[in-house]
C-alpha cells in the first residue's frame, strides 16, 4: 500500500540559490529572492492499493516526481508518505549506465544496487545476458552502444529485479518496433507479478488498455482520477 498525506515537493532552481556568495549576502542582509524553487508536487493526498495505475499529464505536470518520491529518490518537502513493500523502478533508463562501464559491469552494478546477493546475482547475470541478445557487445563500454542497445540492456536488467511495487516511466521510448511487442508482453507479465504498478505516460490510449485507474496530473496537482 502507498499513502500520500499532503505531500509537496519543491525542486530548487539552481541559478538562483546555489551561489555561496549570494547565500552569505542574503544571510547577512536578508534575502530578496521571493521564490527559489519549483513546486513539482502540491499537497498530494492519495491512497494506492493493489492494482495498475496510470499517471497521465503533460511534461512537467509532476508524474515523474511522484514516482521518484515513491521510490525514495526525492524526499517530500512537506507531508508524509508511507510505502509498504519493496520497490522496483524503471524511471530513468540511464540507470547505472556510466558510459565507460561495459554492459556486463552495468548489469552487475544494477544488481548490487538492488541488494541482490552474490549467488543470486551470478544466476541473474547469465539470464540477463541471454535475454538482452547483445552477445559480445556486453564486453564493450556502453559509449559504443546505440540507444536501442542501451534500452535492451537497461530494460532486461530492470525486468529481472523482483518487487512488490513497480514504477515505470515512459518505458517504451527508445525501443524499435520489433522490440516493442516483446517489451509490451514482458511488461504485462511483470505487472502481473507486482502488487502495485504505476505507469507514467503521455499516451492515454495505451494507459487505458493496461491500467485499472488513471490519475490525471496538471501543474503538480491531481486534477481527476478515473
Amino acid at each position: 500500500m502507498i499513502i500520500f498525506e499532503n505531500v509537496s515537493l519543491n525542486y530548487p532552481i539552481s541559478t538562483k540559490n546555489l551561489s555561496l556568495r549570494k547565500n552569505i549576502i542574503n544571510g547577512i542582509f536578508g534575502s530578496n529572492i521571493k521564490k527559489n524553487y519549483i513546486e513539482s508536487l502540491k499537497k498530494i493526498n492519495l491512497k494506492l492499493e493493489k492494482g495498475v495505475y496510470g499517471l497521465y499529464g503533460a511534461n512537467g505536470s509532476g508524474k515523474t516526481s511522484l514516482l521518484k518520491v515513491i521510490a525514495g529518490i526525492y524526499p517530500p518537502s512537506s507531508g508524509q508518505i508511507k510505502v509498504n513493500g519493496s520497490i522496483g523502478s524503471m524511471i530513468d533508463f540511464r540507470f547505472g549506465l556510466s558510459k565507460d562501464f561495459t554492459g556486463n559491469e552495468c548489469i552487475e552494478l544494477r544488481l548490487i544496487a538492488e541488494g541482490i546477493n552474490k549467488d543470486k546475482r551470478k544466476e541473474l547475470i547469465n539470464k540477463i545476458k541471454i535475454e538482452t541478445e547483445l552477445g559480445e557487445y556486453l564486453n564493450l563500454p556502453i559509449k559504443t552502444y546505440s540507444s536501442g542497445m542501451k534500452f535492451r540492456l537497461a530494460f532486461f536488467t530492470s525486468l529481472n529485479v523482483q518487487s512488490d511495487i513497480l514504477l515505470l516511466d515512459e518505458w517504451i521510448g527508445t525501443a524499435d518496433q520489433n522490440l516493442r511487442d516483446k517489451v509490451d508482453k514482458l511488461i504485462l507479465e511483470r505487472i502481473a507479478q507486482s502488487k502495485i504498478t504505476l505507469i507514467a505516460s503521455h499516451n492515454l490510449d495505451r494507459l487505458k488498455k493496461i491500467c485499472n485507474n488513471i490519475i490525471y496530473f496538471e501543474k503538480g496537482e491531481i486534477s481527476k482520477i478515473t
Binding site: A71, G72, S89, D92, R94, F95, G96, A113
Partner: peptide, 12 residues
C-alpha cells in the same frame, strides 16, 4: 558528479 545516472533511478 558522475553518480547522477544511478542516484536519479535508485535511492542509494
Amino acid at each position: 558528479k558522475n553518480k547522477l545516472e544511478i542516484l536519479s533511478e535508485k535511492k542509494i
